[in-house]
Design a protein around this nucleic acid. Structure first.
Lengths: 155, 155
DNA sequence: CGCTATTCGGTGACCTGTCAACTACGTCTA
DNA sequence: TAGACGTAGTTGACAGGTCACCGAATAGCG
């Protein structure tokens, strides 16, 4: 092997490192806000959002896992913890005896209804409102393109 | 309170969720690559990079922590683990008896020299090479602007 | 039908990161 | 120089995640 690596140019580095740091800091900040104001972690929040997307507030584990791009074991551990805190309950599945549903509880609904407005507001205040529409479009396009590439070459 | 939240518009959502997912997936992928090819985690890598930036290959804990934007306790735990694997050593500080240095070892240098080219190549293959220079510039600008805001209003 | 594949989810060991004290040292000031 | 306050790093308990593996149920094929 020729060991010929094209290192990143300064502009490339600037973009790459900016991107990474931005996500780390923003994620950390939003997570702490969510946690401290609503006793809900970002992961909990994501689960609850996906549950409230369905009329019954219930979804199969596997289905949720695919939607969130989580591993099934993570799903299992996390739902167990959330169930422990009363945000969701687990329910057996009649059609497929292997499977199970995750169902949101009233406490779960209350939690997300309390958390959502503040969270959205924070996303606005900390991010969206500092980015122009044109820039948002670029971000969206870049994300989609790169994500598509990622999907492609794992297979 | 009027409970008036401006929810995200579709374009805003698209950009925000794209951004979040992109980082998650890209981070996961790069991390696994690094780990599997070089036995070095992304966090290890970051530490080693910062150490090799100095001529002596040594830095104060606190200094490193600021550079990486890590909490001091994370620093402490992580360095302990890296020291356990022989990548760095801890060294007392003469001038300030409270403090200490983290010093890279030969094994640490070897590890990063093995890991860096592959890592950079992966960042290229999975990200940089799918983004135009203009888009990179937008990314960098947005990151810097938003990071600056974050710095501001924490204080 | 019977055997193998695969899928669904759970489990336990282990690694990382956070939070909240805590120790020990340094600095500033009355 | 004593006391208060700040700073450097550590520690332990805990939440979150990954990995490798397991057991049960189902699908699919000969």
């Amino acid at each position: 092997m020729g060991e010929t690596v094209r290192w990143l140019t300064p502009e490339e580095q600037r973009a790459w490192r900016g991107f990474v740091r931005l996500h780390e800091r923003l994620g950390g900040r939003l997570g702490r806000l969510l946690q401290s104001e609503s006793r809900v972690s970002p992961a909990d929040f994501a689960v609850l959002v996906h549950l409230t997307d369905t009329p019954q507030g219930r979804r199969r584990y596997q289905d949720l896992a695919r939607a969130l791009e989580w591993e099934k074991s993570r799903m299992s551990h996390h739902i167990a913890r959330m169930a422990g805190r009363g945000l969701v309950v687990r329910e057996e599945c009649a059609e497929d005896a292997r499977g199970a549903f995750v169902v949101i509880t009233d406490a779960g609904r209350a939690a997300i209804e309390a958390a959502a407005p503040r969270h959205v507001q924070a996303v606005r205040d900390l991010f969206v409102d500092h980015v122009t529409p044109a820039e948002l479009r670029v971000l969206a396009e870049v994300s989609e393109r790169v994500l598509a590439k990622l999907d492609e070459d794992t297979v």
